[in-house]
Design a binder for these strands. Structure first.
Lengths: 142, 142
DNA sequence: CATAATGATACCGATATAGTATCATTAATG
DNA sequence: CATTAATGATACTATATCGGTATCATTATG
């Protein structure tokens, strides 16, 4: 069971790149080369982030992508939703119905409780959290 | 993102059946009919539960399955591990390496912290919890 | 007008999910 | 002791998702 798949992983890397490199605009080629990952695949990911409004895109020569929001407003949970759809830990067998054993399914209500806590925790992590944590670690290294 | 897939869902149903019906031994046919689910598929699931020691099986006429452990010792997290493998919310890009941006990946350390809490919560839910919760709900209905 | 970027889409191979199908084995029982 | 009814083991299949690749269109710079 994975929650952070490759798309999300690459999306995070690209976003971090844009913050830390402090470039006005970054291209797919630059980032794909930097991280040594598939360029067309990254491109598709960035296009998706553009569509949902997390990035701005600029076509033509010298074009590329840049952040459309302050880093404190980009949350990990958003990326998960974008690439994995809504978080549903349970497949749910309530609506499957025809389940005579468990009318008001007790398993699912337990799972859903966990799920809520988990999502609440997840919703606290922004790109800012991530990048700043990195800064702190770098400072400690020196 | 789903954590409870159909195999796990069916496994839970079957286990609950065995507890609540208080039969000495239950057959695949009975349970598949009761829940209106695929018999051969359920069979495969029960065979797996038998192999890992959660069920005892008895071959031949009047054979079937029964619980091999007290219900307080069967945990939801075990079922998840059996059918989904180890829980890994992160795909992890640490060992992917070649990631120049994030050497001691701060995203993953955040995710891993969440992951630990989540698993700890999950580990508390046993078949007993589930079944007893059901009893309580039934009592309230009356 | 050439070049270098994104936009949109269609395709593709590998893996996972949710089964189905068969044959072998085993135990009860009439 | 043969029939029946159960599991054991294993192979096959259809569909969806994941991680890409490939193309062509569009757009902006110089």
């Amino acid at each position: 069971m994975k929650m952070i798949n490759r798309e999300i992983g690459y999306a995070i890397k690209a976003l971090c790149f844009m913050v830390i490199e402090e470039k006005d605009i970054a291209t797919t080629s630059q980032m794909a080369a930097y991280f040594k990952i598939s360029r067309p695949f990254l491109r598709k990911i960035l296009q998706k982030l553009n569509k949902v409004g997390l990035l701005e895109s600029h076509k033509g020569k010298n074009g590329g992508f840049k952040l459309a929001l302050p880093i404190s407003e980009i949350f990990l949970i958003d990326l998960i939703k974008i690439f994995q759809g809504p978080i549903k830990l349970s497949g749910c067998y309530k609506k499957d119905d025809d389940c005579p054993l468990i009318a008001e399914c007790p398993i699912m209500s337990e799972i859903e409780r966990l799920e809520k806590n988990f999502i609440a925790d997840l919703a606290k992590i922004s790109l800012k959290t991530i990048v700043e944590k990195k800064q702190i670690e770098e400072d400690q290294d020196q």
